[in-house]
């Protein structure tokens, strides 16, 4: 069954690249939605039945860790796979994301193969 995906990043460039990478995978994809920050992401998650989230960390309004925390506190999104894709490479940020319930973590810069490999592992 096709799965809808949400890409959360304040960079239009990264959203576009991830969109392309997702289309190159063998995953049965439905629609790919985009959000520019955590606030927009929460709205998109309310409006659509999303099966996977790819999220940046550093974003205005609501960052990726705040978004992740809200999702894990909500019964409806507790098990939703969330892959963090971010320039944040410091160990404490990675640990914080893992403790908050991130399903995976990819550091920018990334290759399409790295993203595909992570998604294969997650799904």
């Amino acid at each position: 069954m096709a799965m809808d995906v949400l890409i959360v990043d304040d960079s239009a460039a990264i959203r576009k690249i991830l969109h392309r990478v997702l289309r190159q995978t063998d995953m049965p994809l439905g629609e790919v939605f985009e959000a520019g920050d955590g606030v927009e992401a929460l709205q998109a998650l309310k409006d659509h039945k999303i099966g996977l989230v790819l999220s940046d960390i550093n974003m205005p309004n609501m960052d990726g860790l705040q978004l992740l925390s809200k999702l894990r506190q909500d019964q409806a999104f507790r098990d939703l796979p969330v892959l963090m894709i971010t320039t944040e490479g410091s160990q404490h940020k990675v640990m914080e994301a893992v403790q908050l319930g991130a399903t995976g973590y990819v550091r920018k810069p990334f290759t399409a193969d790295q993203i595909k490999e992570k998604l294969t592992g997650i799904l």
């Binding site: 320039t87 944040e88 920018k108």
Partner: peptide
């Protein structure tokens, strides 16, 4: 962002 993010880390 990626280059200076790397440097910052």
């Amino acid at each position: 962002n990626m280059i200076l993010g790397y440097v910052k880390t």
